[in-house]
C-alpha cells in the first residue's frame, strides 16, 4: 500500500427520522404526479369532464332511481378518480421508475424499500385529496347534495379501494416492462369504466357482466361509494370483495415484484 493512513475524521452520518423520510417521499411523489401533464389529464381532467358531461347532457340516458342526476353520478366519478390515481397513474409511474433505476437508487438511501412504499401510498392519498376537492367542488356547484352521514363511510370505501388498486398497480409495475404497463394500465382503466360497474351500477350492465362486475374491485368500489353517498349504506359484500382483492394483489406484489 502506498497511500498514507487515513485521518480519522468523524462522519456525522445518520438517517433522518423515519416520519421525515416518508413525508419527504410522499411530498416528492405528489409533486411529480401533479406536475405531470398526462397524469393530471387522467386523474383530474378526465373525471371532471365525465362528471360535467353526464350531469349536464342527456347523451347517456340514466335511470337514477329517483335521485337527481348529479347525486347519482358523482359517487361513481369519485370512485373512478380513486381508481385512476391508485391504479393507472401509480402503475405507470412505478413502472418507469423501476426501469430507470429510481426505485433501486432510493432503496439504497436511508428511505429503504419500506419507506419508498409508504411514501408512494401517502402520495396517492394526497393526490386523491386534491381530486376529491376538485370533483366535489364541481359537483356541489351543479347541485350535488350527498348524504352527509355517509361521508365517513365513503372515505373508508375510498381508502379500501386505494389499497386494492395500489396493490394491483405495484403488481403490474413490478412484473411487466414499462411499455407493457403503460398499455395495460390504460386499457384496464377504459375497460373498467365501460364495463366494470364503476360509473354505471353493476346491476345495470348487460348479461353476465351484471354478475361479474360486482366481483371486480371497480364494481365493489362503485357500489360502496354510491351506497354511502346516496344514503343506502355500504354493502358488506363490496367491502369483502375489496378486502379480498387487496389481499390477493398485495400477496402477488410482495411475491413477484422485481426491483431490477
Amino acid at each position: 500500500m502506498t497511500s498514507t493512513p487515513a485521518p480519522t475524521t468523524p462522519h456525522p452520518s445518520g438517517a433522518a427520522p423515519a416520519w421525515r423520510r416518508v413525508a419527504a417521499q410522499a411530498a416528492f411523489e405528489t409533486r411529480m404526479i401533479l406536475r405531470n401533464g398526462e397524469q393530471l389529464l387522467v386523474t383530474v381532467a378526465l373525471p371532471v369532464i365525465l362528471l360535467v358531461g353526464l350531469v349536464q347532457t342527456h347523451v347517456v340516458s340514466l335511470d337514477t332511481e329517483g335521485a337527481t342526476r348529479v347525486d347519482f353520478v358523482t359517487p361513481g366519478v369519485l370512485a373512478l378518480a380513486v381508481m385512476s390515481t391508485a391504479f393507472t397513474s401509480q402503475a405507470i409511474a412505478t413502472a418507469f421508475d423501476r426501469r430507470n433505476g429510481v426505485l433501486r437508487l432510493l432503496a439504497t438511501t436511508p428511505l429503504g424499500r419500506g419507506g419508498l412504499l409508504a411514501g408512494k401510498v401517502l402520495g396517492v392519498l394526497a393526490v386523491e385529496v386534491v381530486q376529491i376537492v376538485v370533483i366535489a367542488g364541481v359537483a356541489l356547484a351543479m347541485g350535488w347534495r350527498p348524504d352527509v352521514a355517509g361521508v365517513p363511510a365513503a372515505l373508508g370505501a375510498a381508502l379500501l379501494g386505494t389499497a386494492a388498486f395500489t396493490s394491483l398497480a405495484l403488481l403490474l409495475a413490478g412484473v411487466l416492462r414499462a411499455e407493457g404497463v403503460l398499455a395495460v394500465a390504460n386499457l384496464v382503466l377504459v375497460l373498467l369504466v365501460v364495463g366494470g360497474g364503476i360509473l354505471v351500477p353493476a346491476g345495470r350492465l348487460a348479461g353476465p357482466l351484471a354478475h361479474l362486475a360486482v366481483l371486480l374491485p371497480s364494481g365493489a368500489l362503485g357500489e360502496a361509494m354510491r351506497g354511502a353517498l346516496l344514503g343506502h349504506g355500504v354493502p358488506a359484500f363490496s367491502v369483502v370483495v375489496l378486502l379480498g382483492w387487496t389481499a390477493a394483489f398485495g400477496w402477488g406484489a410482495a411475491r413477484l415484484f422485481r426491483w431490477h
Binding site: 416528492f28 406536475r35 430507470n100 433505476g101 429510481v102 433501486r104
Partner: peptide, 11 residues
Amino acid sequence: MLQDGGLPTGV
C-alpha cells in the same frame, strides 16, 4: 451512484 443513474426524470 448507480450505473444507469436512477434519477427521477420529472423533477
